[in-house]
Design a protein around this nucleic acid. Structure first.
Lengths: 251, 251
DNA sequence: TATTATACCGACCAGCAGTCTATTCTCAAG
DNA sequence: CTTGAGAATAGACTGCTGGTCGGTATAATA
């Protein structure tokens, strides 16, 4: 093979891009390193020049994700006109908006990220995102407590719960995506809206706010996401027949 | 090798026992099938006679866990003298008690289950446990709503949150185990107690109860667990030098 | 131009999950 | 008491995996 040399940072990004695509479509475990390097058009040696292991590649990917996510909400964090409650709501609205807006590829991520074979990938990203967002959330809550908007002790704990809920919301939506027989879709949507409302009220109460203060998404939020899906059908799906070959047999 | 034939169910249980020990000490991914069958003293062929795949073994293990856990709290569920709040508290106290009581091996599980290499294993067990406990929790909450003890819509959602919190509590404790430099241990314990209190109050409010109704654990709960640890030092820890060998190198 | 560090190549390796064929054991039907 | 079907076991074998290694071409430096 001809030797192709690229600027290292470019090559690194390219590698991350290919890996991201493969990990999302096939899952971290199922996508082999050989697949990745083949997709990137480089050799084993070249790969191990950039990353110490497959694991390290995953780590780098998670960090890039987290960085991008944080950058996406930077505007909200910098806005001096927002009070703590406003900032908290804006934060959640923005990260929601980001997902619906660029539906084309962003929700592909959304759907794929929660498939069982992506558990490891998801967990890493989640972890990285948490350590990025946690300090920010803590600061917002701390301010809210200070100026009397929120009434709670343990801002770190509440920040954790907020993120837990955020993730749970996504999870719950992803489940609907998975079981997407158009027939009972509407029932699923109903249930999901209810869940989002529950999380909102739960957060209200945990923060000592009057019910209805926290807005994870307007009513119709879930439906909007689900609709964005139907209008955008062709998302890469796992295909490779690396699946089990044997039928179970028990004594 | 001499051919040893055992009663199938016994062999199956034995296989699960060995697998459990290895998965917990080394992690699901790191413990190889060869390790498992070597530990169990059987051949590849015998293994695949009982389980269709390594994955299937994990599944079976998770189900056994969940079944045992549910059995452990059956008494609480059957007790006709408990009202919904009492039952909910007893449920949490019992599953807590089970962990401290048989500290010798139960907390080994407790600590190991949360190590990063056990993510997959943990997730499976958690999933299995959730599908066992969820209906039970839902029923308790539904009754509580009916007789006016609890004030919430969406019992399923609340049940999910309860389990989320339960898991998060464990997670948070496990983190302290991990960073166990005896020096800052006390600070960690303090933080953890606060977190447990937060979850309790959060649940109180979500369920529309007066603060202090829910008791995940008495004050001192975390400290008790941590102490049980120090008095019981020799727990199998991952050892096998299957770890990465290379130093990172970046351009 | 000579030297050194960086980017890259691909053959190679041990170990992995899973497959296959062959053997030995059990136990119920005849 | 035989027999034979099927359950239980053995272990060699396979394709592939993540990772290693010695080497080669290019860029940077002097």
């Amino acid at each position: 093979m001809p030797r192709i040399i690229k600027h290292p940072e470019l090559r690194r990004e390219e590698l991350l891009d290919r890996a991201q695509a493969l990990f999302l479509t096939h899952g971290y475990d199922r996508a082999s390193l050989n697949d990745v390097i083949a997709a990137a058009g480089i050799s084993k040696g070249a790969f191990y020049h950039y990353f110490a292991s497959k694991e390290a590649l995953l780590e780098a990917l998670a960090k890039r994700f987290a960085k991008q996510a944080l950058a996406g909400v930077q505007g909200v964090l910098d806005d001096p006109d927002l009070d703590p409650l406003g900032r908290l709501n804006a934060l959640m609205a923005t990260s929601r908006q980001a997902k619906i807006d660029t539906a084309a590829d962003a929700w592909a991520l959304f759907e794929t990220l929660f498939r069982p074979e992506n558990l490891v990938l998801f967990h890493r990203i989640n972890q990285a995102a948490s350590s990025s967002f946690s300090p920010v959330l803590v600061e917002i809550i701390r301010q809210g407590v200070q100026d009397g908007t929120f009434r709670t002790f343990d801002p770190e704990g509440v920040a954790d719960i907020v993120m837990q809920f955020g993730m749970a919301t996504h999870d719950v939506i992803a489940k609907a995506f998975a079981s997407g027989s158009d027939a009972d879709m509407d029932i699923a949507i109903e249930a999901l809206e209810r869940r989002v409302r529950l999380y909102e009220i739960a957060l209200d109460r945990i923060l000592g706010l009057p019910d209805g203060s926290i807005r994870i998404g307007e009513p119709g939020y879930v439906r909007a996401v689900m609709t964005a899906r139907r209008s955008n059908p062709s998302i890469p799906r796992p295909s490779k027949d690396r699946e089990p070959r044997r039928a179970p047999s028990r004594p």
